[in-house]
Each structure stands twice: as C-alpha cells, then as structure tokens.
Amino acid sequence: MSTTATQSHSAKTERHDSHPYAGMWVTADGYIRHELLSNGRYDEARGKRQSAYQGRYRVTGNHIDYVDDTGFTADGEFRDGVLHHAGMVLYREDKRD
C-alpha cells in the first residue's frame, strides 16, 4: 500500500473511530441493544439472543441507514441524544466503571 493510501486510510479510520454516535444504544427496558461499532458495522441483540442481527450502518448528519447481512434495510434518526429507529426509542448506554 502506498504512503498516500496508508495516510488516507488512517484519516478515514480516525474520523470514523471518533464518530459521536458509536457505542451502545438500548431501549428503556434493555430488551433491544444496538452496538454501533467504530468500523461501520453494528451488532443488535434482542433479549437473551446476542447478535440477533448484524450488518453495516452509515450516518449522514443525524440520519442513520442500516443494511443487515441478509440485505434488509432500515433507517433511523438521532434527535436530542436519542435514537429513533423502526418505531423504537433507544438511549445511549451509560457505561459506568
């Protein structure tokens, strides 16, 4: 890989890693959990079923588009620190040490 390509790749990775919406988003009851990974992938758990859905996502402004690994698409919107997605409301998980 050329130096230019390496620098370009690093810059893209750095920008994506610091995306403000990356992290865990959960419904108030904790049943649905979306982990938005810094590499543009997501992992959704439902109840006790880990990795119920996986795929990729793309955020444009406050809008998020999902494409799961089977090709199913969905979208959502971040409003006032809350993720509204497919009739669900998800809140950023507060990670405490």
Rank of each mutant, 00 (worst) to 15 (best):
G87M: 11
G71L: 04
A45W: 06
D69L: 09
H84T: 15
Q54N: 09
Q50E: 06
E44V: 14
Q54E: 03
D68A: 04
G76A: 12
R58G: 11
F78C: 13
D43M: 06
H85P: 10
K48V: 01
Y91A: 03
H63N: 02
V59C: 07
Y66L: 13
Y53Q: 06
Y53A: 08
Y42L: 05
D68I: 05
H63W: 01
Y66G: 02
R49F: 03
L90P: 06
G81K: 10
G55L: 07
R58F: 12
G71H: 09
G87V: 12
Y42D: 06
H63F: 02
A74I: 05
Q50N: 01
R79L: 07
D69T: 10
R46S: 07
D68P: 03
I64P: 04
Y53V: 00
G47K: 03
A45F: 00
Y91L: 12
A86L: 09
Y53D: 01
S51N: 09
V67Y: 00
Y91N: 07
A86E: 11
G55Y: 07
T60P: 06
Y53S: 05
Y91V: 06
F78A: 14
Y57F: 15
R49S: 08
V67W: 01
Y57L: 11
L83R: 09
R46G: 05
H84L: 15
I64F: 03
A52I: 08
K48C: 00
D65G: 00
Y42M: 06
D43A: 05
F72L: 09
Y57T: 00
M88R: 15
E77G: 06
R56H: 10
T73N: 08
Q54T: 10
E44Y: 04
H63V: 10
K48M: 05
T60L: 10
D68E: 11
M88A: 12
N62H: 06
S51Q: 09
M88L: 15
D75M: 10
R56V: 08
A74G: 15
A45S: 15
L90W: 03
V89L: 11
T70S: 03
H63Y: 02
R58N: 09
Q54Y: 00
L90T: 13
G55R: 05
A45Y: 01
K48Q: 07
A86Y: 12
T60W: 04
D75W: 13
T73D: 06
F78I: 15
N62I: 04
H63L: 02
D69A: 09
E77V: 15
G71P: 04
H84Q: 14
G47S: 08
L83Y: 11
D80S: 12
V82G: 02
D75Y: 12
Y53R: 13
D80G: 10
Y53E: 01
G61D: 07
V89F: 05
G81C: 12
H84I: 15
I64R: 03
Q50Y: 01
G71E: 06
R79H: 08
G55M: 09
Y57V: 02
T70C: 00
Y91T: 13
E77R: 12
D69S: 10
A52T: 13
F78K: 10
Y66P: 02
R49T: 08
G76H: 15
D80F: 04
Y66E: 01
H63E: 00
T60S: 14
R58V: 15
H84P: 05
